[in-house]
């Protein structure tokens, strides 16, 4: 088991296919609407028409796959009134269902929408980094699933050495907020964090 498991997302290879989302649903039997991994589409650009009826444009789009980043400074843990949200012995942020009362403060505070309310259980649920698999030496589901090999996982310090600190890319929140254990290669089309050049364009899908 890794000491500080972290995700690495190669957004320049992410095709937006959502295999990570569906394989996670299958592995974790998630009810409809509960999405432990979410693929956001960030789209922008403008069209112009010339007098001859032809068009010019500067349209761009890219996808960002996000689950829980098991942050160094997890706001969900800080705000949880029952201590249900905690960092477990494997350094994975997880929910103790014996303590969770489903108040959803964690959901309201997490800038990544990682904690997801399960209405059937009346409790919060979230990515547990497939630690059951990791304990057996297996690969987390989304990592093994990714057709483009865009999701990887590893020791946070080692990933940082290879890919640097987490970057502030639209539409992600500023990493200073929660210090996510997340490394990445941004998409070729990526816009800086806070960019208003585009917008999240698939709200119903995440």
């Amino acid at each position: 088991m890794l000491k500080q498991p972290a995700f690495f997302i190669d957004m320049s290879s992410c095709s937006g296919c959502k295999t990570c989302m569906v394989s996670c649903m299958d592995k974790n039997d998630l009810p409809i609407g509960v999405k432990w991994r979410r693929v956001t589409e960030f789209t922008g650009g403008e069209w112009m028409q010339r007098p001859d009826g032809t068009f010019g444009q500067n349209v761009f789009a890219y996808y960002v796959s996000m689950s829980c980043n098991h942050c160094d400074d997890p706001i969900c843990v800080k705000v949880c009134p029952t201590t249900a949200m905690h960092r477990n012995e494997h350094n994975i942020v997880t929910v103790d269902h014996n303590k969770c009362v489903g108040c959803r403060y964690c959901e309201m505070n997490c800038p990544y929408s990682a904690p997801q309310f399960n209405a059937e259980l009346g409790k919060m649920t979230k990515c547990d980094f497939c630690y059951d698999k990791q304990l057996k030496g297996e690969t987390p589901t989304c990592v093994a699933a990714c057709p483009m090999r865009a999701i990887k996982f590893g020791e946070f310090e080692e990933l940082k050495k290879m890919y640097g600190e987490s970057q502030y890319i639209a539409p992600l929140p500023n990493p200073a907020l929660t210090k996510p254990r997340l490394t990445m290669i941004p998409s070729r089309n990526a816009k800086p964090g806070g960019s208003t050049e585009g917008m999240q364009s698939n709200p119903e899908e995440v």
Partner: peptide, 19 residues
């Protein structure tokens, strides 16, 4: 894209759909 708004699209929709 403030952080609060990033939260809204995802969590609110997810919660509603689950209910």
């Amino acid at each position: 894209w403030s952080r609060r708004e990033f939260l809204k699209w995802s969590a609110a929709l997810g919660g509603l759909a689950a209910l």
